[in-house]
Simulated assay, not measured.
Amino acid sequence: MWKDFKEFAMKGNIIDLAVAVVIGGAFGKIVTSLVENIIMPLVGVLTGGIDLTKSFVYGSGEAQIQLGVFLQSILDFLIIAFAIFMALRIMTKLTRKKEEAVVEEPTPELDAKEELLKEIRDLLKQEKA
């Protein structure tokens, strides 16, 4: 059983997935910080000081429905999703350009027989002309 697990864990796809999850989590924290510390304060200034996390609170005492925090989370998600989409789009374009630059039509190499046949063909064309 340990051998099977080790083979499964060491496959390239699993390791790539693990790296992607870690990098995605770190990228998510960066974008969340961008939203909370830069974008939302600007939105608050533009809307006259509205802070969604403190607005739209319903209920009393400990039993409160914080609709503003929920709306903030939705906005965070949309901005994070858009940022990841843009990053992936840029990375895809860069990899496509690299792939297009690398892919070239290889010129077929002629062996000795084919070379002789080409010469004979060319000589026959010259005799007819």
Rank of each mutant, 00 (worst) to 15 (best):
M1H: 04
W2Y: 11
D4T: 02
F5A: 08
K6C: 03
E7Q: 12
A9L: 07
A9K: 06
K11P: 05
K11W: 01
I14E: 02
I15E: 04
L17H: 13
V19C: 09
V21D: 00
I23P: 01
G24I: 03
A26I: 15
F27V: 05
G28H: 02
K29C: 03
I30A: 04
V31D: 07
V31Y: 09
T32P: 03
L34N: 03
V35L: 00
V35D: 06
V35N: 07
N37S: 12
I38Q: 07
I38Y: 05
I39Q: 01
G44T: 01
V45H: 10
V45W: 08
T47C: 06
G49Y: 03
D51A: 07
L52R: 02
K54N: 15
Y58L: 13
Y58Q: 03
S60C: 03
S60Y: 08
S60R: 05
I65A: 14
I65C: 10
V69D: 10
V69K: 15
F70Y: 05
Q72V: 02
S73W: 13
D76L: 12
L78D: 03
F82D: 00
F82S: 07
F85H: 04
A87T: 11
A87C: 06
L88G: 06
L88A: 04
I90T: 02
M91P: 01
K93S: 07
K97E: 11
K97L: 13
E99H: 09
E100W: 06
A101W: 04
V103D: 06
E105H: 11
P106F: 14
P108L: 11
D111S: 06
E114G: 05
E115G: 06
L116W: 01
L117F: 09
L117W: 04
L117A: 13
K118N: 13
K118M: 12
D122A: 10
D122G: 01
L123I: 11
L123Y: 05
K125V: 13
